[in-house]
Amino acid sequence: MLETKLADLSITPDQRADLQCAWITNRARWFARYEKLHNATPGELIPAESRLVAGAPPIPNIAAAHEAVIQMLNSRAKEAGQHPAKADLFKQAAQSYQSHLAGSPPQHPYPPALITPGILRTAAAAVVRHRSASPLTIQAAFDHQMSNDLANHTLKLLEDKGVVGPLTGKAPRAVRVPDEAKADQRLSAPVRSGAPAPEVLPPQRPGAPGEAQSDHPLDRLFDQRRMELSRAAQNEASSGGAGRSNVHSPASPHPHPKRSDSRAQEAQQRAADQHSVQAGLAPQ
């Protein structure tokens, strides 16, 4: 009901603020009832999602909508001085929205080929277009089908390329390029030779006990690609060690020391491109 009213673009800013405060209060009450009945929390009180901001559409964009609701909640918290519980709720909600807007370090390691050049360029274009290097901007660019943690990982990749600045924790990263052409130029620059070698992850079994499974199609695609890349990397490490050390077997008439490396890279690229096409995220 509240979300239907919040979707009405003709309401005034004050009316929207009242409805958003009611949305947060109702959610907190539902959380309290759930915890009392089930002795467990149903998730985050303020979810890190970019379709709605406290039940309202993100107008004019996701970053501006978050900044507006943070300012409103801090103001309402001061006004609710005689009601400590309500003031604490609004402060907690404002801090959660600020954290989601600013971003955080990714909590999971990801293989380097998981984010294809096409995906990275799409993310860079969204950041430059909105002048907001927030993980919520990245999520919105992919139709809200990318997890918040993967969006933070994508921003870290853009930081490594010089497209955005470092994480501050208080505000979104700074955008360090003036336009998409400059972003493409930095994304196309060669990787520094002194960069550390990427971590090889062990294959992950889908549905392992204790692991949270995502229903997002893009996350399922990334999980599948991560397992394929991990298996390819492990096979390369176990069978191609002799070739990389440039020590050839006398029984081999045509030694090719880099054959296993190139084949593994080609296989990884084919798998990445194929899945990117299937997800509609192939480089343009």
Rank of each mutant, 00 (worst) to 15 (best):
Val200Pro: 02
Glu35Asp: 06
His256Asp: 14
Arg129Asn: 12
Arg220Ile: 06
Arg33Gly: 07
Gln107Val: 09
Leu155Cys: 05
Asp149Trp: 04
Glu67His: 11
Pro283Thr: 02
Leu52Gln: 13
Pro58Arg: 08
Pro42Lys: 07
Pro203Ala: 10
Asp88Trp: 00
Pro257Ile: 04
Asp261Gln: 13
Ile24Asp: 00
Arg205Gln: 13
Arg173Trp: 11
Asp179Thr: 12
Val127His: 04
His38Ile: 01
Gly210Leu: 07
Ser104Ala: 15
Leu73Gln: 03
Asp149Gln: 08
His256Met: 12
Leu37Asp: 14
Arg225Trp: 04
Val175Ile: 09
Glu180Asn: 13
Gln92Asp: 09
Pro198Asn: 13
His216Asp: 12
Pro42Met: 08
Ala267Phe: 09
Phe222Lys: 05
Ser245Arg: 15
Ala272Glu: 12
Leu150Lys: 12
Tyr97Glu: 05
Pro198Tyr: 08
Ala40Gly: 03
Phe222Pro: 00
Trp23Cys: 00
Ala87Thr: 00
Cys21Phe: 02
Asn148His: 15
Pro117Leu: 11
Pro196Val: 08
Arg186Val: 05
Leu101Asp: 07
Asp143Pro: 00
Ala140Cys: 01
Pro42Tyr: 11
Ala56Thr: 10
Pro206Glu: 10
Gly241Glu: 13
Ala125Phe: 02
Val277Leu: 06
Pro112His: 12
Ser147Ala: 14
Pro206Ile: 05
Ala279Thr: 01
Ala54Gln: 02
His144Arg: 12
Val164Phe: 06
Gln95His: 11
Ala125Lys: 14
His38Val: 03
Ala282Thr: 00
Ala56Leu: 06
Val277Thr: 10
Val128Thr: 13
Ala189Trp: 07
Arg33Phe: 04
